[in-house]
Write a protein that binds this DNA or RNA. Structure first.
Lengths: 123, 123
DNA sequence: TATCGTTATATATTTGAAAATATAACGGTC
DNA sequence: GACCGTTATATTTTCAAATATATAACGATA
């Protein structure tokens, strides 16, 4: 087994392999950590507006993300209700739940990959 | 084997799992695709300035990247020569060559991960 | 029907990152 | 010693992305 560190990187700081993952449709990324967290918070708070506030993101950006996501799914991920009690809100569809569940698994596999690479960082 | 697509994502566009990888020191990223390509081009062209031109990057940004890299390595990755024939230039150190070689392997493993995830994208 | 907070959308403003520009020192070559 | 093109650094300018702001429609409730 190759266990010899090559002393290229500094050893007095915590070195780590890290990264980001997303899903693209025709080269255009539409699903990453941001949209997924947004979906989760829409599910929790019941509205795009509150979810955006929690993430300190402008409503416009949140709405754009959702819209962009909807454009890449076979069914919408969010059903909006403008007006009504409390002004309205939005609810997640089953498609959104599937995306969240899938992304959880993907995240775990990626985390394992990163951890393995960090552990084997002999340089 | 789970082979059932769930028909969540559109099937009329090419869906792909993609991502980015980098190395952090104390949470600060200092080595990703950009710096590595820059190193390679410094090796090819013999100067930071020409390498930056090739990558359509400002000299300042290139210099900052190299400086930042040097701050996270035990030995410098580039030896600069200001003045002299042709005005000077910069040469890569052995440390830089090691980083390039290591990153090549890392890139390949990551590409394999992404390909596997894309292939198993049943959603 | 007036009120409320939301969705939906357009426009204006801010801001932060990148590039552009400027300047000086360097050291071989002629 | 004048001339290069490079390194090194500071300052200014540009530009795109994000935010902020404004406005209207919506629909249950009171």
């Amino acid at each position: 087994m190759d266990t010899a560190a090559k002393n290229i990187l500094r050893k007095d700081i915590r070195i780590k392999v890290n990264g980001a993952l997303w899903i693209e449709g025709d080269g255009e990324r539409f699903l990453g950590p941001g949209p997924i967290e947004l979906l989760e918070r829409i599910g929790e708070t019941g509205s795009i507006s509150n979810a955006a506030k929690e993430m300190k993101m402008s409503y416009k950006k949140a709405w754009d993300l959702i819209n962009h996501l909807n454009a890449h799914t076979a069914q919408p991920v969010v059903i909006p209700h403008a007006g009504g009690e409390k002004g309205g809100g939005s609810v997640l569809t089953a498609a959104a739940q599937e995306l969240i569940a899938y992304h959880r698994g993907l995240r775990q596999r990626f985390a394992a990959f990163l951890e393995a690479e960090t552990k084997n960082l002999k340089i």
